[in-house]
């Protein structure tokens, strides 16, 4: 098996502290998927362009293919599985209501990127949303219903 150096990482993932020895080169996305079996976070490219792997690191959206698991040591990671205990975050319900997903593959990354936006800009306009989601690719929807869903969710969250 692997002879490369490993490190102990302790990360709070979706409210639980997890601790594992992982090869230093392990990307956070692979740690989440392969070690923790949190397969809601997806890999859609190899150049950090598509955003399917977007999660929150200390509350801010990052592409989990761009950092190593060791860089998340002692930090807080939230994935799509941990966004809402019941899976009923307004972004989740609004994505369904606005038909903002088709194949569903980009959806977790989209929702996590949008959630990060709404944390920072609670009442965005359409341009804000488009800008914030520029790093997340969707091939199915044409983005229009995604933008609508985020705007609708922002209104629900404001209430």
């Amino acid at each position: 098996m692997s002879r490369e150096p490993t490190s102990r990482v302790e990360i709070e993932v979706n409210g639980q502290i997890v601790a594992h020895d992982v090869p230093n080169r392990t990307l956070l996305v692979d740690f989440l998927r392969d070690v923790l079996d949190l397969t809601g976070t997806h890999t859609g490219c190899d150049t950090s362009q598509c955003g399917a792997c977007t999660v929150h690191l200390d509350g801010i959206a990052i592409k989990s293919c761009t950092i190593f698991a060791v860089q998340a040591h002692d930090k807080v990671v939230t994935t799509i599985e941990g966004l809402d205990p019941d899976g009923r975050h307004p972004l989740q319900t609004c994505f369904q209501e606005c038909h903002a997903l088709q194949c569903g593959f980009c959806t977790p990354g989209m929702i996590m990127a949008a959630a990060s936006l709404l944390n920072v800009v609670p009442e965005p306009d359409a341009e804000d949303v488009r800008e914030a989601l520029e790093g997340n690719l969707c091939r199915c929807t044409g983005y229009q219903p995604i933008v609508e869903a985020v705007l609708r969710a922002s209104k629900e969250l404001a209430q």
Binding site: R33, L38, T39, G40, T41, H42, T43, T79, I80, E81, G87, Q92, T93, F95, Q96, H99, L101, G104, F105, T107, P108, I111
Partner: peptide, 16 residues
């Protein structure tokens, strides 16, 4: 869409 439920919660069942 009924199928949306699993996709929006990260429970999709893709081959990978």
């Amino acid at each position: 869409r009924g199928e949306d439920r699993r996709f929006i919660t990260g429970k999709g069942r893709y081959v990978d």
